[in-house]
Design a protein around this nucleic acid. Structure first.
Lengths: 227, 227, 227, 227
DNA sequence: AATGAATGAGCCTTCATTCAT
DNA sequence: GATGAATGAAGGCTCATTCAT
């Protein structure tokens, strides 16, 4: 039984990096089993087939990453601005690393971009709670009249800025000279940048602006930022 | 020979959608040749091997997309705010469409996330000019003292917000109820949102703030936002 | 142990239908064990290997079929013609059913056509007694001078006619229109047909015909049927 | 092209004996390709998959056997009795051989007993023409009033007697002492036996007997052979 | 006595590539 | 120049069997 669990875990630990590096098609069961030091038949024995091993590996990846960089439990009195900063920092921490990004992150990135059966659970169990957390923070920062879809949009803007550094890191790396790259990949500085940008935008949100309250399909003139 | 060119073009036009839909590993030379109505040996004959066909297909994808949604030539007198809005609109136009996104977009997305030999040229010929264009717009909007890496960071923030809707559309689709999804995928409204958020942030940039001028490696305390 | 016997019997009862339906190669140990609700290792534990399970299943099949349609014990005074009719009826009863034939019959058919180690015992214990019974009936119907090999030949002709409907039922089904098929598969009518055909032939046997008495290797001219 | 045909034929000639000896499941593509001296991929290249190779092998088996032992074209004046004898002889010739039976015969036997997609065509193209030929001969030998299903039954009885020696040869071999086996497997003598048995039965058919004319479902008492 | 975990051999198939024409 | 035939390598998976318990 103990050995059984070990073999299963070893398999997952071997499959994660392989799938992350080569994708579902590119990775081979043989190579994974070789790394896990188990028989080729073990994949079928423990997981049924390659695809279910992949799904299990994705789930494990997120669970491990969650453990490594957990969301904190904030005190009630903590200002929303600080929560936002910490939230952004954690998001960046999870995504940063570029080429050295842990396999967990790269594997999840693959799943997001080429979603399989695992994606639904991934979103339900991990992305959604985080996103709701972010919406909760925004609730403290934007006027009550701002409709939900606008808060979501602001949330996506914040997440998108963080996400970009991981998902498009190949482009960033080629766009920025190698010697300056490290400047761009400093988590704290970057977190501050994104937080400031977001707070400034939130502060500029005119609470009574018609456009924000009316449905987007009846969008008025460009009066949002009258200054 | 004319036929030769035709075969090569037909091959590229067949390869693009295939690679976009199934990835490099998932797509098969046979299927591509079948669609192109050429012999299986044609890939090796015209391109050497599968990989070089892939690279050629990626390049062609970006060239086609460039034609479809070109960057405009702005009049000198056009306010930078308007240029920014148009830039964002074009970015979103190129990326929107989720599953219905043209194969060109999806193929480039694959290349960004799993870069191959084609990525370097892609960035050099297409991403960099666009990014420089964006930086030029920002030059008109931020004080001269703001260092380049900060402008780049602001540029990445803008691009990242657009990029997110394409790269993470599977997550967005699962996060937002199906009936509200269309609300989030309105290019003009979204462009306005991102523009306003960005402009508000730019307006908030304190031109004399020490942190912004000093190199980030010698970053002082969190005094950027003194309020 | 009681459980042991139960497991063994359950295994046999599960193996029979499986082997009958899919053949030795097609049937899998796992599926058999699943049906028998025993461990996969049980086959090897109780029978040594798959092949010996197969042999045991074949034997059991014939024993069960023997119970289901036993040969009757005839009164001394029963006319041979009636015995023949009953014998044929029983043979047909055992073989009829085509696809709906009980698994026992189908399994034995497989063994006859692709004999394994089980075939020898099957013939010795079951086929031979039946065949000797038939020869005994024929002894009462043909002149004493008829040599044994001729009686055997007549026996084979009778058995062959019955056997055909089971062994070649796929051909019969395709040769005869579906709506008329039932007409051909009426046991009593068919038994009568075969009995009459056989009796007519027996009656026609010229007891003193040279050919019948001389060894077939020295067969004379075609004078058997002088007409 | 020539080489192509050769490879295909070699594959068929290698597949036939393998399938005949080991069945569809038991035979392996590797072994067949080894014998045919072609690459393992050749099966897929020429036939799509193992199953279609099997079907092609079955068809070829029957075609070859047809060539080896063709049905003769009889003169109009040839007595039906002689035609029957020759028909039976040819049937036996095709089936005889016991263990030494050509692979074509054994393969067809497998198909009859475990029919696959090939069976339908086999019956349509080969079995049915032969069976109709036999019915034609019987038409000359039985009174016109005898209904078709009775003629078919007589046909099956004749074919069944021949079929038995091939299909159940394992049983025959175990039932008859080895030294007497050859006596039973003499084609000419056996053909005469079956012909005589059949002719005697035909002669005994009472043309006006009620049962023969009435539908079998309303079968009267056992009055068929009142003698 | 009986079992669940684990295995290694082998199977069919797919695929990118090559070679003679 | 361009192609259809043919190939070798490798991949995922199934299966009967074994071994420690």
């Amino acid at each position: 039984m103990v050995n059984s669990d070990n073999a299963k875990i070893r398999l997952l630990d071997a499959a994660g990096p392989e799938f992350a590096a080569k994708g579902f098609e590119g990775a081979t069961v043989r190579e994974i089993c070789l790394r896990a030091e188990v028989n080729v038949a073990a994949v079928n024995y423990y997981f049924g087939d390659k695809e279910r091993l992949y799904v299990a590996a994705v789930k494990r990846a997120r669970a491990l990453r969650e453990e490594q960089v957990p969301m904190p439990l904030w005190a009630e009195t903590l200002p929303a601005e600080d929560k936002l900063r910490q939230f952004i920092t954690i998001l960046l921490s999870r995504m940063m690393g570029v080429q050295a990004a842990p396999w967990q992150t790269r594997l999840m990135m693959r799943e997001i971009q080429h979603p399989t059966a695992a994606c639904r659970e991934l979103v339900r169990d991990y992305m959604r709670p985080d996103f709701e957390l972010l919406l909760g923070i925004l609730d403290e920062l934007v006027p009550a009249e701002i409709p939900r879809y606008r808060r979501e949009q602001i949330g996506f803007s914040i997440v998108g800025q963080c996400f970009f550094y991981l998902a498009a890191d190949s482009v960033v790396s080629l766009l920025i000279p190698a010697e300056e790259l490290a400047t761009h990949y400093q988590i704290d500085q970057l977190a501050e940048h994104i937080q400031q940008l977001s707070l400034a935008a939130l502060g500029a949100v005119p609470p009574l602006d018609g456009m924000l309250l009316s449905p987007p399909t009846a969008r008025p003139t460009n009066s949002w930022n009258p200054s």
